[in-house]
Amino acid sequence: MASYINTEVKPFTATAYHNGEFIQVSSDDLKGKWSVMFFYPADFTFVCPTELGDLADHYDEFQKRGVEIYSVSTDTHFTHKAWHDSSETINKIQYPMIADPSGNITRDFDVMIEEAGLADRGTFVIDPDGKIQIVEINSGGIGRDAAELLRKIKAAQYIRANPNEVCPAKWEEGEETLAPSLDLVGKI
C-alpha cells in the first residue's frame, strides 16, 4: 500500500443517505473543512454498528471541531436507509452514509477486499485542502474508537495551526507540545 499522507482525495460523486433523504456527495464537499472518510465492511453486521454508533455518540464533538463524518460501505443508499430505519443504534446517525456499490471510492482509498466486494475498516482524515493527514486501517474484527479519532484530529488541527510544533504520544488538547530543534535531539 502506497502512502496516502498529504495526497489529495481522488474525485468522486456518490449518493448518500442523510437525515431522511438521498443526497449527492462529492470530493468537492470535503474541501474547506476537516472530513473523515470512515470505510466499513457492510450494513446489518456486527462490529460495524458499534463503530458507527460510537461516531454518532461523538458527532457533536466532531461538529464543534468543524469536522464532517462520512461513513462509506459498498452497500447501496437504499440499504443504508433500511438499516437506519431498522436499527436503534444506526438511527442515531446524523452524518452522511455514502453508498459505494461500484466499489470505486473504496478502491481509490485502497481499502477494497476484492474477493469479498467489501471495504476494510479504513479511516482517512482529510484537511480543508482536501489532503489526507491521517490513515488508519484495521482488520475486520477490530473496531475503532471515536474518542481516539477525535484526539488525533485535534492534534492534526493543532499542527496545522502551529507548523513549528509537534504533538507527542498521547497528547491531549491543552497539553505541552514539542518544538523540534537541534537542542532537543537526544533529550526526550
Rank of each mutant, 00 (worst) to 15 (best):
G141V: 12
A56Q: 07
K170D: 10
L182M: 12
F44T: 00
G141R: 10
A161T: 07
I69T: 01
A119M: 09
R65I: 15
S86C: 12
A14D: 00
A161V: 07
I137Q: 09
P11R: 04
D28S: 13
P49V: 15
E51N: 06
V9R: 02
E61H: 06
Y40K: 08
L52R: 06
Q133F: 09
P168G: 09
L55V: 14
D183G: 14
H80G: 08
S26E: 03
K81G: 02
I142H: 14
G143T: 05
N138W: 11
N19A: 12
D110R: 14
T74M: 05
T123K: 02
A155W: 11
T106Q: 02
R144S: 07
I126Y: 04
E88N: 10
V67I: 04
T79M: 05
D29N: 08
L150Q: 09
T89I: 13
A146I: 03
A2W: 01
A119H: 01
R151P: 02
F12T: 00
E175Q: 13
R121T: 11
T79Y: 01
Y4P: 06
A99P: 01
E88G: 14
N19W: 05
C48L: 03
Y59Q: 15
I5F: 09
E114T: 13
D54C: 08
Y4Q: 14
P96I: 03
D120E: 14
F44A: 05
N138F: 11
I93R: 03
V9I: 12
E68M: 10
Y95D: 02
H84I: 08
S3M: 12
V125S: 06
G122V: 05
A16N: 05
G53H: 10
G103I: 04
T74Y: 03
I113L: 14
I105A: 10
S102P: 01
E114G: 04
M37W: 06
H77E: 15
S87G: 00
T15D: 05
R151G: 08
K64M: 06
F109T: 04
H84M: 09
V166N: 00
G186I: 15
K152A: 15
E148R: 11
V25P: 00
T79H: 03
M1A: 10
P128D: 03
L184A: 13
F78P: 14
E173V: 09
P96Q: 05
E51C: 05
I113C: 07
P180H: 08
N6R: 02
S87P: 01
E176K: 13
K81Y: 00
G143Q: 10
I98T: 04
D145F: 10
W83G: 02
E165I: 05
F78W: 15
D28E: 15
P168Y: 03
T15G: 01
E8Q: 11
T7Q: 07
D60G: 12
I153D: 11
S139N: 15
A82F: 00
S102I: 02
F12L: 06
D60F: 14
P180K: 13
D29Y: 02
T79R: 08
E175R: 06
F38S: 03
F44N: 04
T15S: 12
S35L: 04
T123N: 08
S27H: 03
P41R: 07
G143H: 07
R144A: 10
D54I: 02
Y17T: 02
R65L: 15
D43C: 07
T177L: 01
G140N: 14
P101K: 14
I142F: 13
F22T: 12
F39S: 01
H18D: 06
D183A: 13
T79A: 11
F46I: 12
D57L: 15
